[in-house]
C-alpha cells in the first residue's frame, strides 16, 4: 500500500517540477530571429555559391580559365571558357557557367583554384520560381557589377 502511494505522489511531483521548468522559460525572452524583419550576419567563412574575384589592379577577373575548378567539381556544374585576347600574355575568362541546380556547395572548386580567382559569396536568399535562373554566368555577373 505504501509503495503505490509513494509512486503516485512522486509521479505527481515530477509533473509539477516539469511544469515549473516550462513556466520559468515562459518569462524569458524569445531566442529566435524574426527573419524577414531582421536577419543574421553570415560568418566570414560562409560557403555560399561561388563568384569570381576581381583583380583590384586591372578591374578584370583574376581567372584565366585554367579549368582546374571544372575538373575538381564532383557534380560537373562548372563550365569555363577562355580566350586569349590580343596583346595579353595569358588567357582570360570569357564564360564561367555555374549550374547551381547541381551544385552542392562543397567548395572543392575554391580549394582547387591556385590563383584565388573564385570565392564564396554571402548570398543565402536563393529562391526563384524559374529554374533557369540558377544556371548563372558568373563572368557576366562580374561584368554587370563592374558597370
Amino acid at each position: 500500500m505504501k509503495q503505490p502511494l509513494r509512486d503516485i505522489v512522486g509521479g505527481f511531483y515530477s509533473l509539477l517540477s516539469g511544469m515549473r521548468v516550462t513556466i520559468a522559460q515562459f518569462f524569458k525572452p524569445s531566442v529566435t530571429v524574426h527573419y524577414p524583419h531582421e536577419s543574421l550576419q553570415m560568418p566570414a567563412r560562409f560557403r555560399g555559391h561561388i563568384e569570381l574575384v576581381r583583380d583590384p589592379a586591372t578591374g578584370k577577373a583574376v581567372c584565366f580559365a585554367c579549368k582546374v575548378c571544372e575538373k575538381s567539381c564532383p557534380s560537373d556544374c562548372i563550365t569555363v571558357e577562355g580566350a586569349k585576347l590580343e596583346g595579353a600574355k595569358r588567357k582570360s575568362v570569357t564564360q564561367f557557367r555555374l549550374d547551381f541546380t547541381k551544385c552542392s556547395l562543397c567548395g572543392s572548386c575554391v580549394e582547387a583554384c591556385k590563383s584565388n580567382a573564385i570565392r564564396f559569396s554571402r548570398q543565402y536568399n536563393l529562391a526563384s520560381t524559374n529554374k533557369d535562373e540558377f544556371v548563372m554566368d558568373l563572368f557576366k555577373r562580374l561584368e554587370a557589377e563592374g558597370q
Binding site: P43, R45, F46, R47, S104, L105, F120
Partner: peptide, 23 residues
C-alpha cells in the same frame, strides 16, 4: 553557429581533408 564559423556550413560540413583540416 560554432561549426558554421569554422567550416562555413551548418550541416554538411566536409571539414576534414586527407591529412588534416580544411582550415
Amino acid at each position: 553557429d560554432l561549426l558554421e564559423g569554422i567550416t562555413g556550413s551548418r550541416l554538411t560540413y566536409s571539414y576534414y581533408r586527407f591529412g588534416g583540416l580544411y582550415n
